[in-house]
C-alpha cells in the first residue's frame, strides 16, 4: 500500500452484500465489497483469496472480482466476490456493470440482505480514529454484523467472509430462506451458476437473494 494510507484512513467500511444461488446442493454466494477509496477493499479480497497481503497494487478502476470455494458447515459454497472502485463517481458505473443482479437485489432484497461492516487496517492501532465500542454500537443500531479486520496481517479477514456465508446458510437451514421457492420469480439465468451446475444436474434454478 502506498503513501497516504496512514493518513486518517484507519476506519474502513467494507460492506459485503450477498445473494445466494442454490445449485443443487452447492451454493454460489455473491458478495459485493464497497467502501471509500483507499480503505483496503482490494486488499481484503486478495487476502481472502490468496492468503497474503497484496503489495504494490494499482488502485482499482471499475470492477474486479475473485472467487474461492469454502466449506461451511459441511456444505460446499463458492463465494464470488466483487470488488469495486472507491471513488464516488465510480459507484454508479459499478452499479451499472453489476446491474444484472444488483438492481434486483436492491428491489427485492432490502430486508433479505446480509451485511457485515468491516473496520479494516486494525494493525494501524496507533492511528485509530474510531473506537471498537463506537463501531459496535453503530453496527448494532443498524443491524449489521461487525468485525475489525486487517488485510495486512490477515486477522479476521477469512472470518468476515465466512461469517456472512454461515449466516446465509443458517437462514436457509432454519427455513427463513427457501431458495427453491424464491427461485420462481426471476427471469434470467446466471452463467457461473450454469457452470457450477453442469456436472450434476440441468435443473433450472434462478438466482435469489437471501434473507437475514
Amino acid at each position: 500500500m502506498g503513501w497516504g494510507d496512514a493518513e486518517g484512513m484507519l476506519w474502513t467500511r467494507g460492506l459485503l452484500w450477498e445473494r445466494v444461488w442454490n445449485a443443487v446442493g452447492n451454493f454460489l454466494f455473491k458478495f459485493l465489497v464497497i467502501g471509500s477509496a483507499g480503505t483496503g477493499k482490494s486488499c481484503l479480497l486478495h487476502q481472502f483469496i490468496e492468503n497474503k497481503f497484496k503489495q504494490d497494487s494499482n488502485h482499482t478502476i471499475g470492477v474486479e472480482f475473485g472467487s474461492r470455494v469454502v466449506n461451511v458447515g459441511g456444505k460446499t459454497v463458492k463465494l464470488q466476490i466483487w470488488d469495486t472502485a472507491g471513488q464516488e463517481r465510480f459507484r454508479r458505473e459499478t452499479y451499472n456493470s453489476l446491474a444484472a443482479w444488483l438492481t434486483d437485489a436492491r428491489t427485492l432484497a432490502s430486508p433479505n440482505i446480509v451485511v457485515i461492516l468491516c473496520g479494516n487496517k486494525k494493525d494501524l492501532d496507533l492511528e485509530r480514529e474510531v473506537t471498537f465500542l463506537e463501531a459496535s454500537r453503530f453496527a448494532q443500531e443498524n443491524e449489521l454484523m461487525f468485525l475489525e479486520t486487517s488485510a495486512l496481517t490477515g486477522e479476521n479477514v477469512e472470518e468476515a467472509f465466512l461469517k456472512c456465508a454461515r449466516t446465509i446458510l443458517n437462514k436457509i437451514d432454519s427455513g427463513e430462506l427457501d431458495p427453491e421457492r424464491m427461485g420462481s420469480g426471476i427471469q434470467y439465468g446466471d452463467a457461473s451458476l450454469r457452470q457450477l451446475r453442469q456436472p450434476r444436474s440441468a435443473q433450472a434454478v434462478a438466482p435469489q437473494p437471501c434473507g437475514c
Binding site: 502506498g2 497516504g4 486518517g8 488502485h59
Partner: peptide, 18 residues
C-alpha cells in the same frame, strides 16, 4: 486527499514512481 492516496497506487512497481 483523493490524489494523495492514489500516488502509491499508480505504477507502484516502476522505479521512478515507487
Amino acid at each position: 486527499h483523493a490524489i494523495l492516496i492514489d500516488l502509491g497506487r499508480t505504477f507502484p512497481t516502476h522505479p521512478y514512481f515507487s
